[in-house]
Design a protein around this nucleic acid. Structure first.
Length: 241
DNA sequence: TGCCATGTTAAACT
DNA sequence: GAGTTTAACATGGC
């Protein structure tokens, strides 16, 4: 159930497996083309909502999409195991996810500076890319993984509420300052998302997503399917202009 | 119980 | 061919 921060937390929870040798590879997506058996898991990297399990000769790409999950011990209640890597003294299971593989060269072509959770995130590059979407609604731009890799529907609504910007505002009608405010809000909320999710208190810190009333004006939030992405936006008509 | 959703892409349209 | 819309996937929480 993954937006970028959740994926980073997953990485932190499984990174102790780096350096270990895979003994057995299982699951419906465990193809022979990328047999990991006998190989060392060299590294784990994330980009937006994607996770890369890196081996010497290839990488395995995992995308949890809407319903994916993972665990470090086998969940027999789930019949949807896609990939399992069994180590000597540990195991890693991925369920209901998209699994593919690629050359390690794939990593060289990634725009790392668009990863909202990444160390190389660039406000300036985001600004540059947002401005190219002059006729788009800002709600769509926030969900554009080429611009805000890792931002999902929760971060979208929460960032816009904090920035006091209406989700249906067109990019061309936003000021330079508005754009910077949105970028900063998306970035800082994503960090908070991770902290709160880790502490198990994300839900109670949401100000607008799936909430009923506005804490600022006591008004009722609007829930509306917005933009070309047709995803729900939660927002306050009074406070978000 | 039924509905909805933290996502994305391929296929089917115009 | 480009651009847009729909279907599909599949689980868990409310």
């Amino acid at each position: 159930m993954p937006e970028g921060p959740t994926i980073v937390l997953m990485k932190e929870n499984i990174c102790h497996l780096i350096g270990k040798k895979v003994e057995k590879q299982l699951g419906s997506q465990a193809f022979d083309e990328f047999c990991t058996e006998g190989k060392i898991l060299q590294d784990i990297q994330t980009f937006g909502k994607q996770t890369f399990l890196i081996f010497d000769d290839f990488i395995i790409k995992i995308h949890l999409k809407m319903f994916g999950s993972y665990s470090l011990s086998e969940r027999t209640d789930i019949q949807t195991l896609r990939l399992a890597l069994i180590f000597d003294d540990a195991s890693l299971y991925f369920y209901t996810c998209e699994v593919s593989y690629d050359s390690p060269r794939f990593l060289e072509n990634i725009m790392w500076k668009t990863d909202i959770m990444g160390a190389r995130w660039s406000d300036d590059f985001a600004k540059y890319q947002i401005k190219k979407e002059a006729d788009s609604m800002i709600c769509d731009v926030l969900l554009n993984q080429k611009i805000f890799s890792g931002v999902g529907n929760i971060i979208k609504s929460e960032a816009l509420f904090r920035a006091k910007i209406h989700p249906e505002r067109l990019v061309k009608d936003l000021s330079e300052e508005d754009i910077q405010t949105i970028i900063s809000a998306a970035k800082s909320f994503s960090e908070d998302f991770k902290t709160w999710k880790k502490a198990g208190i994300l839900r109670k810190n949401l100000l607008v997503y799936q909430q009923k009333t506005c804490s600022k004006c006591s008004g009722t939030f609007t829930v509306k399917t917005t933009g070309k992405t047709k995803r729900k936006s939660f927002f306050c008509e009074a406070d978000q202009i």
